[in-house]
């Protein structure tokens, strides 16, 4: 009906939409890209899901660090919408190569799929530091590339949490493990760490299932398991969000206090539960410093030009007694 005007209005609409997105995305004139000051290295931080509290803390820590060391380097921080958006992260790395960043600090969304593009970056003369989620060793070997990994040992951290739990139990007691997403490297490492602790204390795992990192899914699984295995003495959760779900399931079953819960990450929401004893222990990987460790390492490597080695960052056990006064 409105053929004549439609082409014009459609173009206008599209132009409006595009410019709106441009401004919203922070590309507007208010916020220019960091200028390429000669001599000052530009570090690109490529993050995983910013929808995740943990990664957001990591990125904020990096931004704060850059502000405090503004004379030393420029930071270009980018992240993807959710942890499954692997192709978007590959694009981000490609963009950083095109922008000629001096170093890329990356928390890969997939420990295999990101290897080729990081190798491309390496070949372009960019220093690549792997944080948070370690690249798969077999893929690294196959592609004949090597990136230093700077991050915590999730297996060791989970073992420490499991050990703290085991002190409250006796050999032969039944426990269940609520795993993270089955394809996540850190999820697998935490499960292995829990299993190490369980084996050392002679406990018995009656079931080990995934809660996909989510409160709701973990809640369903724990509720079902409490009925099926009434003698279970403890639930080991691969992150704190799932521990919240486990606590809710125990409360509904009237078993709060009889069944112990441990988590991982030390998010703000579990701190009250730690104080009340509803969650026995968790592990703090110092999220706010994780990206910073990687950045510092990249700056060091830029200076020394040496081929860097892996570096382990600290993981601390947090219990009701040691929990900090964070709100």
């Amino acid at each position: 009906m409105h053929k004549r005007t439609s082409a014009f209005s459609r173009t206008l609409g599209l132009a409006t939409a595009v410019s709106a997105v441009w401004v919203l995305a922070g590309c507007g004139p208010k916020e220019p890209a960091p200028p390429a000051t000669p001599g000052k290295p530009r570090v690109a931080l490529v993050m995983k899901s910013l929808a995740n509290e943990f990664f957001l803390t990591m990125e904020n820590g990096a931004r704060a660090h850059q502000k405090a060391h503004a004379a030393d380097y420029d930071l270009i921080a980018n992240g993807i919408k959710d942890e499954l958006d692997v192709s978007k992260q590959v694009e981000l790395v490609e963009q950083m190569i095109a922008q000629k960043a001096d170093a890329i600090v990356i928390a890969p969304a997939d420990s295999k799929a990101l290897v080729p593009v990081c190798k491309k970056a390496l070949q372009a003369g960019i220093i690549v530091i792997n944080i948070d989620n370690k690249f798969d060793d077999a893929v690294l070997a196959a592609s004949q590339s090597k990136f230093p990994f700077v991050g915590p040992d999730n297996r060791k951290g989970a073992k420490a949490v499991g050990d703290a739990l085991a002190k409250k139990l006796k050999a032969g007691d039944q426990v269940v493990i609520i795993e993270g997403a089955p394809n996540a490297f850190n999820g697998v490492q935490r499960r292995l760490g829990f299993e190490d602790a369980v084996k050392a204390a002679g406990l018995k795992i009656v079931s080990s299932q995934s809660g996909y990192w989510e409160t709701d899914k973990a809640n369903q699984v724990v509720a079902a398991l409490m009925t099926e295995h009434p003698d279970v003495k403890a639930v080991l959760c691969a992150n704190d969000s799932m521990a919240l779900g486990a606590v809710a399931a125990l409360r509904a079953a009237g078993k709060l206090g009889q069944v112990l819960v441990v988590g991982y990450d030390n998010i703000a929401a579990v701190q009250q539960l730690l104080k009340k004893g509803e969650v026995l222990a968790t592990a703090d990987q110092h999220a706010d410093r994780l990206a910073v460790f990687g950045i510092e390492y990249a700056l060091e490597a830029l200076k020394t030009k040496a081929a860097p080695a892996d570096r382990e960052t600290p993981v601390d056990l947090v219990t009701g007694e040691t929990v900090s006064g964070k709100p």
Binding site: A51, N52, E214, T215, D216, N219, S241, L244, G245, A248, A252, A269
Partner: peptide
């Protein structure tokens, strides 16, 4: 209901 059940509000709830 869910917020009350978990006694917490998770921004990723309901995904």
């Amino acid at each position: 209901i869910d917020t009350s059940r978990f006694q917490s509000a998770n921004p990723n709830a309901g995904t």
